[in-house]
Amino acid sequence: MSSVIEVRKLGRRLKQAGGEKAILNELSFELASGEFLCIMGPSGSGKTTLLHLLAGLDLPDEGTILIEGKAMDRLGEDGRAILRRERIAQVFQFFNLMPALSLRENVALPLAIAGRPAGEQRARIDGLIERFGLGHRADALPSALSGGEMQRASIARALAGGQGLLLCDEPTGNLSQQSGLEVMQSLRRLRDEDGKSILLVTHNPRDAAFSDRVLFLVDGRLDPDHELRGPGLEVERIHRSLAELAI
């Protein structure tokens, strides 16, 4: 199976008043095509920083990131933007929907950015909205949606561009338990039915249990001894690893 993401000796430091602090250190891992990988870690472990590096929103101080064989650090800012547009979709903890746009328009945004024709947009977007059970709210503004609806809209938006890789940053962090469950089921279906490659960062063991493999990020390093592999990851097993790592 080919790798969608290859990370080699990745390092990111943060400048602070007293010097530099390593946020990520010597990080190496791969995400195979069609795999659902979860990276767990406590708050401040560098999970979100890692996602930003993978999305090309930030650049590493050391190491390399290959997205479908393309080295991120060799691309300019616009090159990375186009890579995101074509290959990487994202789902955010805080949804990040445009407050002025309706749900339909939010979902259509990646197509608008890519300059796709309106006809193509409509057919694709309506299908996505229906798929996530949001047809009746298509014209509503984000302020009128519930948290679960907003996150499902956010996932629909992530699928609109047709990218094969999905980076998810604590997608259930702002949702009720029921809404969170629905969102995770949606993500799992994307892996199983659409063959999407998914990288999820979370600190929630229930969310991690939906993945094929779990890596633990502690103090900016991946712990090689506690990697968990599916299928059928049990929440208790994840809890045990977390306890062993004192997370």
Partner: peptide
């Protein structure tokens, strides 16, 4: 700035 960042995360170039 969050809107701008989201647009960039969705693949919009700085020019866009």
């Amino acid at each position: 700035s969050r809107e701008i960042a989201t647009l960039q995360a969705l693949g919009a170039t700085r020019r866009q």
